[in-house]
C-alpha cells in the first residue's frame, strides 16, 4: 500500500523535473549582454572576481597550511608571537592600492552608465500594480504591458511553456543601435525596471521620474522583471523588449499610430484596476 504511493510521488516529481531540467541550463554567469555597457559590466565583474579569488586563495592557502601543519596532533608546539607592526602595516596598506585599482575601472563604467545625455529617443515606463505602462514621448504612442502567461500555467493545471512568466501582451519595441533613454516612474508604489541583457535596472518612484538608457547592439527579444517588491503580484509583471531593425520599428510605429488615430490623442486609457 505504502510503496506504490511513494513511487507515485517520485514518478510525479521526476515527470515534473524532466521538462525543467531539459529547458534550463545550469547557467552560472550573467545573461549574455546585448549592450556595450553590459559587456563592460561583465568585464568589470570578472576583474573584481579575479582579484577576490586570488586574495581568497592566498589567505586561505595560509590558513589551510596552518591547519594541516600547525596542529597539535602532528606535534606542533605553539609559538608565542602576537604582534608584528611591519606585517600589520603592510596588510593595511596593500589593500588600499588593490581597492584603488578596482575603483578606477568601476568609476569609468559608472560615468558611462549614468550619462543619459543625447539620446535618440525617450520612452517612459510607468510601474502600476501590477503591470507596466509605456509612453513613447516623441511619437505619442502609449500602451499597457501585462503578463500574458495563462493562470493555468501558474497554478500547474497546464504545462508551462518556454517563456513562462516572462511574456507580455504588448512588448516594448525599440530600434537597434539607437540610444534609448528610459524614464521611469510609478503610479502607486516603488517598482524597478530591470532587463538583465540590456544592463538596465532603475527604480520607479511614484511622483518622480528617474532616467537610464541603453543602446542595443543586436536585434532580438529581451526579457526582464520588476525588481522592487511592489505587493502581491510583484513576481508577475515582466518586461519584454523587442529590439528590431529601424524599418521594422518605423512600420510598428505607423501601425500603432493607426490604432490610436481613432481616439483623441492623449485621452486617458481606462486602466484595468486589478489584473488578476
Amino acid at each position: 500500500m505504502k510503496v506504490p504511493y511513494i513511487s507515485k510521488i517520485l514518478a510525479t516529481c521526476l515527470l515534473l523535473a524532466v521538462p525543467c531540467l531539459s529547458m534550463a541550463a545550469w547557467n552560472i554567469n550573467f545573461q549574455p549582454g546585448n549592450t556595450l555597457l553590459a559587456d563592460d559590466i561583465q568585464q568589470l565583474h570578472l576583474i573584481v572576481m579575479i582579484v577576490c579569488v586570488v586574495i581568497f586563495v592566498g589567505v586561505f592557502g595560509f590558513m589551510f597550511y596552518a591547519i594541516f601543519k600547525h596542529r597539535k596532533s602532528v606535534g606542533h608546539k605553539a609559538s608565542n608571537f602576537h604582534e608584528n607592526t611591519t606585517v600589520e602595516i603592510i596588510w593595511t596598506v596593500i589593500p588600499f592600492f588593490i581597492l584603488a585599482g578596482l575603483a578606477w575601472p568601476a568609476t569609468e563604467t559608472l560615468l558611462a552608465m549614468r550619462d543619459t545625455s543625447s539620446p535618440d529617443m525617450t520612452i517612459k515606463a510607468t510601474g502600476y500594480q501590477w503591470m507596466w505602462g509605456y509612453e513613447y514621448l516623441d511619437e505619442g504612442i502609449q500602451f499597457y504591458s501585462a503578463l500574458s502567461t495563462p493562470q493555468g500555467q501558474i497554478d500547474g493545471t497546464e504545462p508551462k511553456t518556454e517563456n513562462y512568466l516572462l511574456e507580455v501582451d504588448n512588448p516594448v519595441v525599440v530600434p537597434v543601435g539607437k540610444r534609448i533613454r528610459v524614464l521611469t516612474t510609478a503610479s502607486d508604489v516603488l517598482h524597478a525596471w530591470y532587463v538583465p541583457a540590456l544592463a538596465v535596472k532603475q527604480d520607479a518612484v511614484p511622483g518622480f521620474i528617474r532616467d537610464t538608457w541603453f543602446k542595443a547592439e543586436e536585434t532580438g527579444v529581451f526579457r526582464g522583471q520588476c525588481a522592487e517588491l511592489c505587493g502581491k503580484q510583484h513576481g508577475f509583471m515582466p518586461i519584454v523588449v523587442h529590439v528590431v531593425s529601424q524599418e521594422d520599428y518605423d512600420a510598428w510605429v505607423a501601425e500603432q499610430k493607426q490604432k490610436i488615430s481613432g481616439k483623441e490623442l492623449g485621452a486617458p486609457i481606462k486602466l484595468v484596476a486589478d489584473s488578476q
Binding site: 521538462p19 525543467c20 531540467l21 529547458m23 534550463a24 541550463a25 545550469w26 547557467n27 552560472i28 554567469n29 550573467f30 545573461q31 501558474i154 508551462k160 518556454e162 517563456n163 513562462y164 512568466l165 516572462l166 530591470y194 538583465p196 526579457r223 526582464g224 522583471q225 520588476c226 525588481a227 517588491l229 510583484h234 513576481g235 508577475f236
Partner: peptide, 18 residues
C-alpha cells in the same frame, strides 16, 4: 547573476534547477 529577482514567489523556467 542570471537575473532572478528576490522576493518573488514564482520564477521562470531558466531558474528551476538551482
Amino acid at each position: 547573476l542570471a537575473g532572478m529577482p528576490r522576493r518573488i514567489p514564482d520564477y521562470s523556467l531558466q531558474f528551476a534547477d538551482f
